[in-house]
Every structure is written in structure tokens, then in C-alpha cells.
Computed example of a mutant assay.
Amino acid sequence: MNLFCNFKYELIADDTRRSALSRFAGCRRAVFNKALELQNDRKAKSEKPISYLEMAHLLMEWKQTEEMAFLKEAPSQALQQTLMDLDRAIKDTFRKKGDPAKKRWPRFKAKDIGDGFRLPQVKPQDIDEPNGRVKLPKLGWLRYRRSRPLAFKCGDGTLIPGKVKQIHITKDCGKWFVTFATEFEIPDPVMKEKDVGIDVGIVHAVTLSNGKTCDLDVKTIKKIEGEIAYLKRRLSLNQSSRKKLAAKGLAEEFDKRKPSRTRRRLKELIQKKYKRIRSI
């Protein structure tokens, strides 16, 4: 049987490489927003959306302009995948009512929210798994924290290597991560006496068929949620106070695209709190 698994590791990069990754993510965001702006204009005029192939030709034209020449810094595959994502998102909005895959019209992407990019074509020689290295376009070799082998572990403890189909580079709370989308060919599992069933419930987070239960640290989660609520109130007050000061001419106009140092710090703290809940 074929099985798909994602293996996520933290990248070890210096400030120069981290800046380059941020620029790549920024180029991806700029392409998505510019293409979405064109699609929004056509939607307002009741015209048919632009296809992916047409947008890909426009991308080549954008790179030749002085205004968007910075797109040449990013890998072409990552920018093309962005246009594919937008094309797929728009098609999902036209699905029939009641279809679970139906989605709302895509919205513009904001900075520091979902930053990253995807590389669909991966060569086996670009992954040095024993030494924990991956080769990225226009960056070269980057090390990652090899916390576990890039292989599927069977019930008897044997490791089965797989084939990496895609590489995802993402940013979370100031740290960069690499995710390997891997396909495995494993033998069909055989039921054994030691196998157990897992049920995810409400009273207990996990209940096993042998009677054992596993519970989350709900007390700590509720405590963190209270801290998040407090930080969000401060974030809201930061915006309202900035607007009042701007009305009196004591501060610049509030612009969420250019947040202040205090606002950036509050958003970083909120992201770290959410990450801690996810880790729990």
C-alpha cells in the first residue's frame, strides 16, 4: 500500500540565509496579491477569471518590469506554485452548494501570516538525509535538525525509505522549518495481538482499546488562552490609542501594513502562545 507522510524539521540558517528566505516568501506573497487583484477586477466586471497559463505568462512579464524586478531573486517554481494555489482556490469557489470542498473567494495575504513557499520538483541528490542537509534553489545547502530519520517505522521496528515528492518551507514564530512530503510503499499491515485501537474523544483526549487513557494538560492550555486574551486586548487598545493620537496630530495615521514596534512585539507574543498550545 502507498502511504503519504510529512516530516517537519527546523532549519539551521544564519542571518543571511534567513533574510533570503524572507525575501522568497515576500516574492510569493507579492505575486499572489497582484494576481488576485487582477482576478478581483475581472470579477467586478463579471468577466471570466484568468487561467493559470495566462497568469504564468503575466508572471514572466512582471519580472521584466522595473517595479517587480525583485521577483527574479525567488525560485521560479515557488512563484508558479503560488499561481496554481490561487487558480485552485478560485475554482473551489465555483463548486456546487453543499460540496464540502467549496470555499469562499480568496483574500489577500498579509505579512508574517503563513509565510513560506513550496518546491514541487525535488531531486534525490538534493537531500543529504544522513547528514541532515537539504539543497534549496539559489541558496545551496542548508542544515536542519534531524530529530528523526526520514523513513517510515514499521511495527517491528524496521525503517522503510520513501520518495520525497515536495518540499515546503514555512516560518513559525521567527523560526524556519522544512517539511518533506514523502510517499512510502509499505506492506499491508497484519493484525497482531499487540495492536490496539485509538479513539479520540471528549472526556479523554485518547482512549486505547486496552483500557489506557491519555489526557491533555487542560489546566495549562486554559492558562495560556487567558494570556492570549489579555495580549489581544492590548493589541486592540494599541490600535484604538494610535487612532486617537493620530486624530490629535500627535502620531502618524494607523496603518496595519506598517505596524509599530509595540504592535509587532504583541503579535509575536500571541503567535508564541498559540504555538505552545499546538505543541501541547
Rank of each mutant, 00 (worst) to 15 (best):
T82P: 05
D85C: 07
R88E: 15
R88P: 00
R88C: 14
A89W: 06
I90C: 09
I90S: 05
I90Q: 03
K91G: 11
K91R: 15
D92W: 07
F94E: 14
R95S: 11
K97T: 01
G98T: 08
K102F: 11
R104G: 15
R104S: 15
P106H: 10
P106I: 09
P106E: 12
F108L: 02
F108N: 04
F108G: 03
F108T: 06
K109E: 05
I113T: 14
G114Y: 12
G114P: 10
G114F: 06
G116W: 05
F117C: 06
R118I: 11
P120K: 07
Q121I: 04
Q121R: 12
K123E: 11
P124Q: 09
P124R: 08
P124S: 06
Q125L: 13
D128K: 00
E129V: 01
E129C: 03
P130F: 01
V134H: 02
L136Q: 12
P137K: 02
K138V: 05
L139Y: 08
L139G: 01
W141D: 02
L142G: 05
Y144V: 06
R145P: 09
S147D: 14
R148M: 08
P149Q: 07
L150P: 00
A151E: 11
F152R: 04
C154F: 00
G155K: 08
G155P: 00
I160S: 03
I160P: 04
P161I: 02
P161C: 00
G162A: 09
G162M: 08
K163P: 00
V164R: 09
V164N: 03
V164H: 07
K165F: 01
K165S: 12
I167L: 12
H168D: 15
T170K: 13
K171W: 04
